[in-house]
Amino acid sequence: MSTGVARGRLSEERRAWRKNHPHGFVAKPETAPDGSVNLMVWHCIIPGKAGTDWEGGNYPLTLYFTEDYPSKAPKCMFPKDFFHLNVYGSGMVCLSILNEDGWRPSITVRQILVGVQDLLHQPNPASPANYDEYELFVKDPAEYQRRVRQQAKQYPPLV
């Protein structure tokens, strides 16, 4: 797949996002100090869903695209050591729509971000990425929820 396909698709995604995106979400390509835009890296904010333990947090997520996009999913990374049973210690998100078997080229940045937001409050214990968080989720759900609420305070609402 040529370089132009990935960047062309990402330009379309950027235009679509600017016109219509879910309330509270942020997704924008990286801007270099010289003002140039890198469409291959997007800095995003995912708001915690109202009525969940994630509420009140605005969680930073970075999307890393390759020249193979949209044939291959981007890597989605929270900060290192982000607390969630489906997030590796490196920050990489483990979500079915992002793996090789679940990815479809028609999946959009919007769908990825909404899917990650859903994963936050509806973790998948059948596919844990972090065993310690998984154990806590299964054996001490109250402590897991407390840690989630504590983490939400580390990522306060955008002003």
Rank of each mutant, 00 (worst) to 15 (best):
Y134D: 01
E133N: 14
Q117R: 01
L98F: 11
Q111C: 03
P105G: 10
K139D: 15
E143Q: 14
P141Q: 14
N130W: 09
R104I: 01
P123V: 11
A142W: 01
L85Y: 06
I112Y: 08
G115I: 02
M92F: 11
Q117W: 01
G89W: 13
Q122Y: 08
Y88P: 02
R110H: 15
C94G: 09
I97Y: 06
I112F: 05
G91Q: 06
Q111K: 10
L136D: 11
I97N: 08
A126D: 15
D140A: 13
L113H: 07
I97F: 11
S106M: 07
I97G: 09
D81C: 10
W103I: 07
D118R: 00
E100S: 15
Q122N: 15
Q111F: 03
I112R: 05
F137W: 10
Q122G: 14
E133P: 00
Q117F: 04
Q117K: 00
D81Q: 13
A142G: 00
N99Q: 10
G89A: 15
P128Y: 05
S90N: 14
Y88W: 12
V138D: 01
F82R: 02
N86D: 08
T108C: 06
Q111A: 14
H121W: 12
S96P: 00
G102M: 07
K80A: 12
L85G: 05
V116P: 01
C94E: 03
Y134A: 02
F78L: 00
N86E: 06
K139L: 12
K139V: 13
K80S: 14
F82K: 08
K139I: 05
M92S: 15
H84N: 11
T108I: 05
Q117N: 02
P105H: 10
V87K: 09
S127N: 14
P79F: 14
N86W: 04
F82L: 02
Y88H: 15
S96H: 13
E135K: 00
C94R: 06
P128H: 08
Q117L: 05
F78I: 07
D81H: 15
V116N: 03
L98N: 11
L85M: 13
E100R: 06
N124C: 05
I112W: 02
L136A: 12
D140N: 14
P105R: 10
Y88I: 08
Y88L: 07
Y131H: 06
V93H: 13
L119Q: 10
S90Y: 11
I112C: 04
S106D: 08
I112D: 08
V138G: 03
E143F: 02
L95W: 07
C94N: 09
